[in-house]
Simulated scan of single mutants.
Amino acid sequence: MDRLGALSAFMEAADAGGFTEAGRRLGLSASAVSKAVMRLEERLRTRLFHRSTRSITLTPEGRLFLERCRRIAAEMEAAELDLAQLHDAPRGKLKFSLPSAGMPFMEQLAEFQKRYPDIELDMDCSDRLVDVIDEGFDAVLRTGDGSDSRLMSRVIGTYSQMIVGAPDYLERRGTPMTPDDLSQHSCIMYRSLVSGKLLSWRVVYDEEPVDLPLSPATVANALEPQLAFARQGVGLACLPDFTVRDDIDSGKLVAVLDRYLTGRTTFRVLWPSSRHLSPKVRVFVDFVAENLLSKR
């Protein structure tokens, strides 16, 4: 228990930026908080704070230790909440965000809504970079490494990109056999809402990853227009595999250059680590992890 108290004193001091304010929040004296942190440093044989007469700042080791402590605290809170709410039904508003690449998940998310009718879904469907904490999101679906220390994450699955075109387009323009052939084709490109730049098509060519410099024939800032234009034979599009599998199986689209597209991207669900994992968030995280990419 003394160790848990020292961890609490350390985290509060780091958040408050001083021992006096940390003591006020904890109902202790500044001296008691300072001594608890000093004992923790002695036990770890590591200085966690730089101290001056006016302030304290975390050392590099202190910043690393703080991230781990926050995760420990979040797990403890979650364990307590799980027991306290064991018999509570998931309910209330659940605000979450997903990128345009997640639009094909709508049927599964509708199934979630039917399974938990007391949860009100408030969806933000866009590729803008939301601030999960400041904007009050309960959860977000995102690609990438999920390295934000303020967030917990769980891997949903992985996917690869596929270059696809309609059969009539390939009949008119020919099937590209190497990445170099794409310079002769009409390409349907994606423009990032965040950077304003076109997203390049990354291929593995001569055993090296290459970002192809393509000249776009069509540009869109969402997935659905790219998919629609590809189906209509306007050009080739590079899209996540889970968005085009059904079209490929039905013959509406044909995949090309598969052997040059070997990379995979991780899809995650993330939620604030500083909050209790409420029943509504817990069932949402479990549902998306088990149903979104696993059934595609």
Rank of each mutant, 00 (worst) to 15 (best):
Q85Y: 03
F96M: 04
D134P: 00
D124G: 08
L81H: 10
E120R: 10
P104Q: 05
R128S: 07
D124P: 07
Y116C: 02
P117D: 01
P90N: 08
M106G: 14
G136N: 11
E107M: 03
K93Y: 00
L81R: 12
A101F: 06
I133V: 12
M123F: 11
A73G: 09
R91Y: 05
H87N: 12
I133K: 15
L141Y: 04
Q85W: 05
S126R: 14
R115V: 00
E111W: 00
G102A: 12
E77A: 12
A84G: 03
Q113W: 01
L81N: 06
G92A: 05
L86T: 07
I133R: 13
D118C: 01
T143V: 14
P117M: 01
L94G: 05
E120S: 06
G92D: 08
K95I: 01
E77F: 01
R115A: 04
D118I: 01
M106W: 04
Q85T: 13
M76F: 03
Q85I: 02
G144H: 14
P117W: 02
D124I: 06
F112V: 00
Q108E: 11
E80R: 14
C125N: 11
P99F: 04
T143P: 10
A74H: 05
A139G: 10
E111L: 04
L86N: 07
K114A: 07
I72N: 04
M103C: 00
R128I: 07
P90V: 08
A84T: 12
E75S: 08
V132L: 05
G92Q: 09
R115W: 00
C69R: 13
A101N: 02
R71W: 05
H87C: 02
I119Q: 03
D145E: 15
L129T: 06
R128T: 09
V140T: 15
D88G: 01
R91Q: 14
L129A: 13
D82W: 07
D88R: 15
D138P: 12
T143D: 09
K93C: 02
D122E: 10
D122P: 01
A74V: 02
S100M: 06
L81D: 05
A78S: 14
E77G: 08
